[in-house]
């Protein structure tokens, strides 16, 4: 376990020097600073009386401030989830190919580290990076709005954690692809395809009747059952952030499914990695 942690830390250290990661951190910080300076919210007896962005009035209806903030948290959860996943696919696609680059992989394999530990450490490091980004954005927004309105809620932060779970499933497939073919472009492409397929898979119940009953519909149902339902987790994340009711058992089932999918794909990657000659 110590070895896996050390590899993960190594990945995080390397991430600091990446422009993509730096750009993300700067973008999130700028967005939070922009909101902190420009957003003014007048709260009167627990009611949001007015909201101004750069002095311009945004909506005039008087509503309980925690109710008024729900659409904001909902929208933010979607942005963090889909934005985080998109960024993660593009920004983290070349981590594994760099790890496997000639010269470096031989050096790593010469160390007393088992191959699967190397794989698990890389996966853990990149996933931790994605989770940190999501928590920074959501946590910053919660602190900012809490200070301005007095509404303190942990739900958007919990919702941001779901982004980490969603990304882990995608990155497991990207990492295993990179082990198969050392290409950042192919790794990103697999992540992208899985991302889009996952959005479709989330609506499989609604979309299935569009196919003719028979082979076409059955094939659609079987194929989409094997893909992590990205959009379902996005909707759940948004509902969680917006204090809408979220059923625990289906959420637990989906989350476990995502985690098992990630572990399954990683096991496939480990199987290939174990028999590969460098």
């Amino acid at each position: 376990m110590m070895v896996i942690g050390a590899v993960a830390l190594d990945v995080l250290r390397e991430a600091r020097s990446r422009r993509w990661v730096l750009a993300l951190a700067i973008a999130i910080s700028l967005m939070l600073i922009f909101l902190a300076l420009s957003l003014r919210m007048d709260v009167l007896d627990g009611a949001l009386a007015s909201t101004r962005l750069f002095g311009a009035l945004l909506g005039t209806d008087i509503r309980s401030v925690d109710v008024a903030l729900r659409p904001v948290f909902r929208g933010t959860a979607y942005v963090i989830y889909y934005g985080g996943l998109s960024f993660g696919i593009l920004g983290c696609a070349d981590f594994a190919p760099t790890l496997l680059s000639p010269g470096r992989i031989e050096q790593l394999l010469a160390l007393p580290i088992r191959r699967w530990e190397l794989l698990a450490g890389t996966f853990l490091g990149v996933t931790a990076l994605a989770v940190a980004g999501a928590l920074y954005g959501a946590g910053g927004l919660v602190l900012l709005l809490g200070a301005k309105t007095g509404v303190w809620t942990i739900r958007p932060v919990l919702a941001a954690l779901l982004t980490g779970v969603g990304f882990s499933a995608l990155y497991a497939a990207m990492l295993s692809t990179a082990l198969l073919v050392r290409s950042a472009a192919l790794s990103a492409a697999v992540g992208g395809v899985l991302f889009v397929a996952g959005i479709v898979a989330g609506y499989r119940v609604k979309l299935a009747p569009l196919f003719h009953a028979g082979l076409g519909r059955s094939a659609f149902q079987v194929l989409t059952a094997m893909v992590p339902p990205i959009s379902t987790l996005a909707d759940t994340s948004a509902s969680l952030a917006a204090s809408a009711p979220v059923e625990t058992i289906p959420l637990f089932s989906v989350l476990t499914g995502f985690i098992l999918f990630g572990l399954g794909v990683l096991a496939l990657g480990a199987w290939h990695f174990e028999q590969k000659d460098f």
Binding site: P228, D235, T236, F258, L260, L268
Partner: peptide
């Protein structure tokens, strides 16, 4: 085994509100 279990669990999901 893991992918089969994952497929089972993920296919049981309904639509979020």
């Amino acid at each position: 085994v893991l992918l089969a279990l994952a497929a089972y669990l993920m296919s049981r999901q309904g639509q979020a509100p």
